[in-house]
Design a binder for these strands. Sequence first.
DNA 1: AATGAATGAGCATTCATTCAT
DNA 2: AATGAATGAATGCTCATTCAT
Lengths: 226, 226, 226, 226
Amino acid sequence: MPRAVREQQMLDAAVLTFARRGYRAASMDEIAELAGVSKPLVYLYLNSKDDLFSTVIRRESESLVAAVRAAVEPGESADRKLWNGLRGFFAYAAEHREGWAVLHQQARTHGEPFAREVAVVRGEIVAFVTELLGAAAKEAGCVGELADREVAGLAHALVGAAESLAEWVNCLSEEGTSGELTHPSAKDSAATMMNVVWAGLGRMMGGERWAPSGLAGQGSRSGVGG
Amino acid sequence: MPRAVREQQMLDAAVLTFARRGYRAASMDEIAELAGVSKPLVYLYLNSKDDLFSTVIRRESESLVAAVRAAVEPGESADRKLWNGLRGFFAYAAEHREGWAVLHQQARTHGEPFAREVAVVRGEIVAFVTELLGAAAKEAGCVGELADREVAGLAHALVGAAESLAEWVNCLSEEGTSGELTHPSAKDSAATMMNVVWAGLGRMMGGERWAPSGLAGQGSRSGVGG
Amino acid sequence: MPRAVREQQMLDAAVLTFARRGYRAASMDEIAELAGVSKPLVYLYLNSKDDLFSTVIRRESESLVAAVRAAVEPGESADRKLWNGLRGFFAYAAEHREGWAVLHQQARTHGEPFAREVAVVRGEIVAFVTELLGAAAKEAGCVGELADREVAGLAHALVGAAESLAEWVNCLSEEGTSGELTHPSAKDSAATMMNVVWAGLGRMMGGERWAPSGLAGQGSRSGVGG
Amino acid sequence: MPRAVREQQMLDAAVLTFARRGYRAASMDEIAELAGVSKPLVYLYLNSKDDLFSTVIRRESESLVAAVRAAVEPGESADRKLWNGLRGFFAYAAEHREGWAVLHQQARTHGEPFAREVAVVRGEIVAFVTELLGAAAKEAGCVGELADREVAGLAHALVGAAESLAEWVNCLSEEGTSGELTHPSAKDSAATMMNVVWAGLGRMMGGERWAPSGLAGQGSRSGVGG
DNA sequence: AATGAATGAGCATTCATTCAT
DNA sequence: AATGAATGAATGCTCATTCAT
């Protein structure tokens, strides 16, 4: 069996094991056994537990980014790009539960070498979203009302909320197999996101901001649905 | 030295250590040393590593909830309550970085006994936010346009986004001590949240929903800034 | 509460705990708690775990010997002395299960300081039995047929068999509370012993010995019931 | 070095250590060191201290039973079978002092899983002896005088006495290396046993029982050497 | 290309024992 | 006379990692 194949099997086993047990609790023994190879072979191919974990993170990160990018069709409008990107993300998170769990739960909680790698990838995604939001604003004819920092903040909130939603959905599907309500599909999740963020973006483009009421002269802007 | 005091010292040390290393990687030796006591004393007072972790989770959970509740003043309008609650949350997350990290990063990734405890507390907070959003809608005169499920979805997204934002801010302040831009204050974060969510709530109360464009007859609702 | 009383309470607790858990597994904490005192007090009165164990052994040994001696009435014939002594022994073992268990099971299996003490007491008992057997032989008019070594051997076998029987009976009563047959009383056990040993003694006094058959010239002696 | 060999070395070391220190006081470190291997290897091969102890008990039990069975030649008369079995037993106990000590002293005093295993083996031996005694009685022409229960009682006493004797002999040889008298050989011990038990069996087959004297009309039966 | 055999280092946990009061 | 507070030293067990083959 060629090396490349064996290596992927090991990485698959590692993803599963890290997702199930966490980085520290996952043992190289378990990974090797699950991969159907002897432990020394894992070391021969992947050097160490840390290297193995890094490789896993890298592979899963790239896989996630690729999935999202593939979902976004180049020629479309910004809001459809965002819509498609979100659908791609939620679909990926649902289909690659373990890989996503490793990225979202394990990699960020285990010290410097790993957290940074994930942070970098996340940064790229946030930048991508920021770009999309800016383009959307332009398409809608908004010029000066929306500061760059505000767009970045929105993007961060968007990404964070999406992650949170994805994890929540995955947790749901882990417990309630017998529930009457099927858990939300990728489409549902994406729609929820679009509703919230798109609305926020629209209002903010209109110059509206929320501000603590009780201060004079902010009347029309601080109310809801004014 | 009286037992109660020592116990709090141990819990402080445990919070720090669990936050820094994660549950598995944190050793009882390190915790005991950081607390300035011998390991057997930690066991005498707190029974086991699991019990210690549980106790930490409980203490930090209660502390977080107390902080948020204390920030919310009873007599005010729903939007000011939300605003103050968010400020309280972000301030807490910034001031109790380690405690917050244990709750958000560690407790949720280490098996049933712990994850459930955090999930319960988080559920309470989501319920609290849901209630606030519903009240805000009523105050604004909205009656039928907003389904309960939608409010609950919004609340989930709000909480998830806030958590994500809080973690991001904490990560920023961890790295860039020498940065020219100070990272966002609790007020900034709360304002970002209010802008996004409040706007979303307002639009949705107006009956507007985002939907994939390109389908005829959806013009006025699906665009941005219409 | 006077010291002597407290000390006995501690020893009682120690006997129970040593019997239940074994020497090593018994913890000073458990003993102190069972005695209803604080651990330092146990140390104040009894110095160390080893000393406590030694004291227990001494107390229980003396108690056992006293019980046996008390059962033997001075003026009687040797066989009745033996009979009464055995009854006393079996009664003691049944009534002081824990003390007897400590002597028989624990003290002999835990290294030099303790095993020797028990061995000494056992030696005294064997000597006492040897004397009785010798006296019985004389009473029966036996003069030369029975060597001292043979009597000593018999005494050893008798004591060993009695111990074995006593433990067996105690084990029975530990399990089968619901059995239809009540386990043997002290009288039953003593009778069993007398039947075996007395018969053996009688035959040997008659000069009969078992010897491997098949050797010429041993005919009448090696058969059973010849 | 092949696994099977190492495993036996470990078991040898464990037998020695358990015999010397007792189950609880024996440390896996000591066993590993005595076996000339590292501790993890002991765990790799034998799982846990409990499993190791169980394995030891099983190995030594089987070894003991095999030794006794090997000593008994199939075609012989019952009394010779008993004689040879006893010689086998005493020889085994003397040659495998530590193994025998583990079975007799340690295994029976350390809780359910172990005590039961030894009890089972002991039960088999008692049954074997019971069978032999019954056969011997038949061979000697005894038909109705000896109840089954009495034979079983005799067998119990025989086994207990033999165990006790074996331990005594081993204790002797532990202390008195400089003594003038060599301690009894396996043959001596077996002869002692045969004399006592065979005599007892013979008498009982004759219908004689010991009973407390002083009661009129029991003359010929209760005396010694009648 | 692959593995059986082996280990150094660390960890959670417990226990006999001692002070200061 | 008695104890709450505290610890040094083990002990059972696990794991990442290596080497000889």
